[in-house]
Simulated scan of single mutants.
Amino acid sequence: MLHTLKDFSLRAGSLLAILALSACGNLSQVTGQGTTDKPVWPDPAHASFTNGSYPNLDSLRLVGNGMTKDQIYSLLGRPHFSEGFAGVREWDYLFHFRTSNGDETCQYKILYDKDMLARSFLWKPAACADVLNGQKPAAPATFALSSDVLFGFDSAVLTTKGRVAVDRIANQLRQRNDASVTVVGYTDRLGSEPYNQALSQRRADTVRLTLVNDGVEPGRVSAVGKGESAPLVQCNNGKQSELIACLAPNRRVEIVASGSH
Rank of each mutant, 00 (worst) to 15 (best):
G238N: 08
A257F: 15
D154G: 03
D115G: 09
Q172I: 07
A127F: 05
V233H: 08
R11T: 09
A129K: 10
A198V: 09
W123N: 14
P194G: 10
R252W: 09
H80C: 05
V221H: 03
A127Y: 05
R11Q: 06
K38R: 14
G215K: 01
A86V: 15
V221D: 06
I244L: 14
Q175A: 12
A47W: 03
P137E: 01
Y73S: 05
R174C: 08
D7P: 00
C106G: 13
P140C: 07
L75I: 05
C235M: 09
R11S: 09
V216Y: 05
Q234I: 10
L150M: 09
D178N: 14
L94F: 02
A204R: 02
L145Y: 05
V233D: 06
D58I: 05
D115H: 13
F95P: 10
Q107N: 03
G134L: 00
A165N: 13
T105K: 09
K114R: 15
Y93S: 11
G185L: 13
L145K: 11
N133G: 12
L145N: 08
S147W: 00
P44V: 08
R176K: 10
M1T: 05
G227E: 08
A223K: 02
F151E: 06
W41Q: 07
N250T: 07
L243W: 03
R208N: 11
L10G: 03
N65K: 08
L19N: 01
F97D: 15
Q240F: 11
E254N: 14
L16F: 06
S200T: 09
N51Y: 04
G64M: 01
L75N: 09
T35N: 07
Q201E: 10
S14T: 06
Y73E: 08
V183R: 00
F95A: 09
Y186Q: 02
R61Q: 07
Q201D: 02
N51A: 15
W41G: 06
Y108C: 05
F85G: 04
R220W: 02
C128F: 01
L243P: 00
A248S: 15
A179R: 15
